[in-house]
Design a protein around this nucleic acid. Structure first.
Lengths: 344, 344
DNA sequence: TCTAAAAATGTAACCGATTACAATTTTTTT
DNA sequence: AAAAAAATTGTAATCGGTTACATTTTTAGA
């Protein structure tokens, strides 16, 4: 019968011989409508297969119940866990997520921001690309007071919230741990120190060295893009270094593992000759041999917290709680790759 | 000045003293509008910071430029690669993706379908939960002729397209490869054979055995949820089996790797005592020792193809090309975990 | 130069909800 | 039972576009 045409509040109103205003209110469970009428309307709505039209509502209310997400790339263990956490919270709160990837390019990040802006997202969750340094592409959001939350790769911006871990402390602990195992010539593999996460990790590394009276050497910092290839390249580089380093602290497990595999291939023994600590607690860290010591980085939880925080700000009676930074707990997980004194 | 209020086509029209119809057409690049007027309007739009309101448009056109995605879970290497591929195509075609996870539960899958239906998605991309067997929750889409595409975990449904690989052939090749290496007592670790992917892989496994005149044994099929725990459980189970199996073909790399690690822990040598083949070509397959032989499953490409196909159907002059099934290429990648004759 | 055809622009209805304000009905108070 | 207060329901404007159809302007042909 009504198989094709959408049912609207007009249809319901006509059938019950009441006004659309009452129908609209009843469907929203407005307390001003009597229980009897509400029941009548709800029943008919069900019977006729009514479904509300979000576009009409959004057009009128100027809200979209949509959250935009911009991330470097989705297909990494960490990031997909974050997204899973966000989806979990968003769905349960009636929000939709629009996810877009910047592929580590400022241009794509900008294009994505424009798209999301035009899609009228209610809020934005962002993890920045490697070399984004200007934030002009987020200004339209700030001007329109659209809440903006940075997570993981954050940046200090007075109108926005940051969700992150204490990267400095985590790196400090990782490095201190290596030193406690008798290591002195510790190489740090990381990405260009532009993003907070890499700056802070480098800083933590340096501070740990300083606190243990070990001189920092710039040539011990290997900068790349933290990919598996970068890990292999780092291994080739390390192989040439004299004296041979006795430990590696990498800013990412994937890269650390690739580096380990390459060194093993060359006949280097881990951890006897060179110890390893990674970052993220990616599943590969428990597969590689020896198992990789790493920093547990709670991605799923970070996604949940970021989404929850943003949604709170959206619903919030404007103005309250301008929380600026939320730090999640992270911890060093010690495994075989870094245990024991050097034996060579 | 105009810092807060949104600019609409009415504002543009008033300023230029023309009708909103012309403005609307010009912004859509309708050929019926003269180049001169178009330029005038485009310039002013830019100057005034006009942005089109999708809700008004969607309300009127009854299209949303949004694609719904339902997947078991996003945080696996394979699935995040699929999503990345979809995002890539969707964004470049001006579509948004709404992603929701079923967490392998029919109830959540149903709830997600309802949500996406109410969000008026233009099309739907689905990979089914383990134990979904009724498709009633997709009927509203079919009735409304909203294109529905299944990928990976598909189901035969006359109105919808399926994107998959030839699981039977892949499993056949994997099993045949093991047999060619002299293995005879081959265990198959998989999920309950409800979903096509597991049914077909089991079938391919059986067929390969049959073709090589090896008797199929039901007790050689270990059914679980393919998680890492399931892999460890399978290892414990295998350890008890007499005679000891000489090969394992697992329907998923993660599970295979967990099983390998557990067996290694028990002192079993791989591949000498027991060979392994996995499925998916997950990065861990090149980290575990020995490296895992596996089936390369092109996730990113599958995501691209699925999105492309759906978008084509959306834009398409209805009725053409009711492609029913698209098979992507997959291939066996032979690594150390399955090479060489048994030496025990 | 005049007229028919083509090109460009305009008018107004429509998509489906929300909500301020007005009107009506019901309940309470006196 | 009448008046006042409370509860309910209705009217109509509004959100910002799209598009069928009507009208005006421009171009081409005779």
């Amino acid at each position: 019968m009504d198989s094709d045409k959408e049912v609207t509040i007009y249809d319901l109103a006509r059938k019950l011989n009441i006004s659309i205003a009452t129908v609209s209110r009843a469907l929203k469970d407005d307390p001003v409508v009597s229980k009897k009428t509400k029941k009548k309307i709800a029943d008919l709505a069900l019977e006729m297969g009514y479904r509300s039209n979000n576009f009409a509502r959004n057009l009128r209310t100027q809200r979209t119940n949509t959250i935009g997400v911009i991330i470097p790339r989705i297909n990494s263990y960490f990031m997909s866990a974050v997204i899973a956490g966000m989806e979990n919270v968003a769905t349960s709160e009636g929000y939709n997520l629009i996810i877009s990837q910047s592929s580590e390019s400022v241009e794509k990040e900008t294009a994505n921001a424009v798209t999301l802006f035009n899609n009228r997202v209610d809020g934005l969750l962002v993890s920045l690309a490697y070399d984004t340094d200007s934030l002009t592409h987020f200004e339209p959001f700030i001007k329109k007071k659209i809440p903006l939350t940075f997570f993981d790769r954050t940046v200090d911006q007075k109108d926005s919230t940051c969700i992150q871990i204490n990267n400095l402390k985590a790196a400090y602990e990782a490095t201190t741990h290596l030193i406690s195992q008798g290591r002195r010539r510790i190489v740090h593999i990381t990405a260009p120190p532009k993003r907070n996460v890499y700056v802070d990790r480098l800083q933590g590394y340096k501070q740990a060295l300083a606190d243990q009276r070990i001189a920092f050497r710039q040539d011990y910092v290997i900068v790349g893009n933290l990919s598996q290839e970068a890990g292999a390249d780092a291994a080739a580089h390390i192989r040439q270094m004299k004296p041979f380093p006795d430990a590696v602290f990498a800013a990412n497990d994937n890269c650390a593992v690739a580096c380990m595999l390459a060194l093993k291939q060359m006949g280097v023994r881990i951890p006897e000759e060179i110890a390893f600590v990674g970052f993220n607690n990616d599943p590969v860290s428990t597969v590689v041999e020896p198992n990789l010591t790493t920093i547990n980085y709670p991605g799923y939880e970070m996604g949940q917290v970021a989404a929850r925080n943003l949604i709170d700000r959206l619903g919030g009676t404007s103005g309250i709680r301008p929380t600026n930074t939320i730090i999640l707990r992270s911890e060093l997980i010690i495994r075989e790759s870094s245990i024991g004194q050097k034996t060579v």
